[in-house]
Amino acid sequence: MAAFDPADELGHDLDLRLLTNTSVTLFWRTAILDRTTAWLSAHGYQVTRIDAAHWTTERDLHRDIAAALDFPHYYGHNLDALNDCMRDVVSQGYGWASDTTGLALVFQGYDSFAARCPRAAQSVLDIVADQSRRAALLGRRLICLVHSNDPRIRFEPVGATPVMWNEAEWLDSRRRAD
């Protein structure tokens, strides 16, 4: 089963455009992120927002992701355990309702966490990208939207694909304060 039906007219679908080059997309302007999540919600996606702005340690990351995705009580609170539990989320064991079009994970204020814990921040995005690829193999859609208050933030490629800016803020000139 394909994640998208090739018989459909897909050129105008935002979700396909988000997933074409990478499953992890950066956002600077909140209004653009809000329009994107509204579109995804209107098209049947489960939108799960996780506020990363206040994370000061990896412990904070694990606590909030576990709560947002209803991880089991035995969750190990480390990156290997996160990868294991995300595999279960993709299998829709928990954290992702099976009657939805897909799952959109939204990390808000991620630049704050990335500044405090850069290795963990990069690893989380890599795990989500890898699990998004796994989801696609099962005919499912997992999208990660990352909000940053820093318009110049950059990440190394994740899941062998780059973390890219959304189409409205693609150009650096579109991420300047007005």
Rank of each mutant, 00 (worst) to 15 (best):
R119P: 02
F113T: 00
M86R: 01
V106W: 00
S98L: 09
L82R: 01
S98N: 13
D84P: 13
D88F: 12
P118G: 09
N83E: 15
A81W: 03
L79K: 08
D111L: 04
A97F: 14
A81E: 06
L105H: 03
Q92T: 14
N78H: 15
A121V: 03
V89L: 02
S98W: 11
C117W: 01
P118N: 06
D80G: 15
Y94A: 11
A121H: 05
W96F: 09
Y110V: 03
L105G: 02
L105A: 06
M86K: 02
M86S: 03
G109Y: 02
C85R: 03
D84I: 11
A97V: 09
S112I: 10
N78D: 10
S91W: 05
A114G: 11
V106Q: 00
D80M: 12
R87T: 13
G109N: 05
A81P: 06
D88R: 11
T100K: 12
N78F: 05
D99W: 11
G109W: 00
Y110T: 03
G95P: 04
V106I: 07
G93S: 15
D99G: 15
V89P: 00
A120V: 12
L82E: 00
L105M: 08
P118L: 03
T101L: 09
D99F: 11
R87H: 14
Q108V: 06
R119S: 09
A97K: 11
A104K: 04
A120Y: 08
N83P: 08
A114I: 03
T100C: 11
T101G: 14
N78P: 08
P118K: 06
A115T: 15
Q122L: 06
T100P: 10
A121D: 07
N78I: 03
D111K: 07
D80E: 14
C117R: 07
V89F: 01
C85A: 13
V90S: 01
Q122W: 07
L82Q: 02
D88V: 08
A114W: 01
D99I: 08
D84R: 15
A114N: 07
S98K: 12
R87D: 09
R116G: 04
S98D: 14
Y110P: 05
Q108A: 08
C117E: 07
D80N: 14
A104G: 12
S91I: 04
L79E: 10
G102C: 05
Q122E: 09
D80P: 08
D88M: 13
T100F: 06
A97E: 13
Y110R: 07
T100L: 07
R87E: 09
T100E: 08
D111P: 12
R119M: 05
L79N: 14
W96H: 03
A114V: 04
A120I: 09
A81Y: 05
D80F: 12
V90F: 02
F107I: 03
V106M: 04
T101H: 12
A121R: 01
N78K: 12
Y94G: 12
